[in-house]
């Protein structure tokens, strides 16, 4: 069964200024990146999935529940959202209390919430910091706390909004590993993101939003092969793919390793000129 089904979704904040225009989509288990220009409607879209906004037209169905008929609280056991800015999300003065807050609110017992919080903090590498004040930690560590807080709620669907902002190389690698871990646990992971290199290395499926519509939808490799369409949407392919297109290397490589392998294979096939 698809975890999310969207049928003819229409949304606007002000009548006559459409934000989302007749979107129909289904999300299966594949990890999915949502990319698009600033103002393309990506954040509005995930707020509709969370039930924070209700459709003006059409339906959003999460695990069989139509968001128009459900409260945000009821949906919170099925779908979690990690905020872009951890400072907007974190409000407790102890890391453990912060991470247990969501689980307790959706009805987990004290014991279960503690167990899930411990597991989530271990996953993000902050198990040793449970008694610290989140604001004594760095911004990148607070980002990890905000992720652990949602992971501990054990929802089937987890959405990230710009997970790589303010992360250095190792921070990005860490978040990549967390996403893969969640996918391996069978969770549906959706991410709004502007970092195309990270998308190429991490997500199976990619959606391109432009002017309130889905312009492209396919495997990440298929989507990044469409250089022209991406440019129209004010995007660009990952750096690896850009160099591959320019040099005529086939197969839309997405990572440095794939590029090097393809190029070596191409070199090996070339007839030796006398």
């Amino acid at each position: 069964m698809n975890k999310i089904e969207i049928r003819n979704l229409v949304f606007h904040y002000t009548a006559g200024e459409p934000i989302l225009n007749d979107i129909s989509l289904a999300f299966d288990a594949r990890s999915t990146a949502i990319i698009g220009q600033n103002g393309a409607g990506k954040t509005t879209f995930v707020k509709l999935l969370k039930g924070l906004l209700k459709p003006v037209g059409g339906d959003v169905v999460i695990n069989g529940i139509n968001t128009s008929d459900a409260t945000v609280a009821a949906l919170a056991r099925h779908i979690g959202l990690v905020f872009q800015n951890p400072n907007d999300q974190i409000f407790k003065n102890k890391v453990l209390d912060e991470v247990m807050f969501g689980p307790l609110n959706i009805g987990q017992s004290q014991d279960e919430a503690r167990e899930r919080a411990d597991a989530a903090l271990a996953m993000v590498g902050l198990a040793g910091r449970i008694n610290d004040n989140p604001y004594d930690l760095s911004l990148s560590e607070r980002k990890l706390i905000s992720i652990a807080s949602i992971v501990a709620m054990n929802t089937e669907i987890i959405i990230f909004d710009e997970p790589t902002i303010a992360q250095d190389f190792s921070g990005k690698e860490h978040i990549k590993a967390i996403i893969r871990d969640l996918v391996a646990q069978g969770k549906l992971v959706l991410t709004i993101i502007h970092d195309m290199d990270f998308v190429a290395e991490t997500f199976e499926r990619t959606l391109v939003f432009a002017q309130g519509r889905v312009l492209l939808d396919g495997s990440t490799r298929e989507v990044f092969a469409e250089e022209e369409v991406l440019r129209q949407a004010h995007l660009e392919p990952p750096h690896v793919t850009q160099l591959a297109h320019r040099t005529g290397l086939p197969g839309t490589p997405l990572t440095v390793e794939e590029f090097v392998r393809e190029k070596r294979a191409q070199g090996a096939m070339r007839p030796v000129t006398p």
């Binding site: 220009q37 600033n38 710009e162 303010a166 502007h194 440019r231």
Partner: peptide
Amino acid sequence: DEPTSQLDPQGSE
């Protein structure tokens, strides 16, 4: 200090 972290690729360029 990281002035384009929230911009889309063309905006950042």
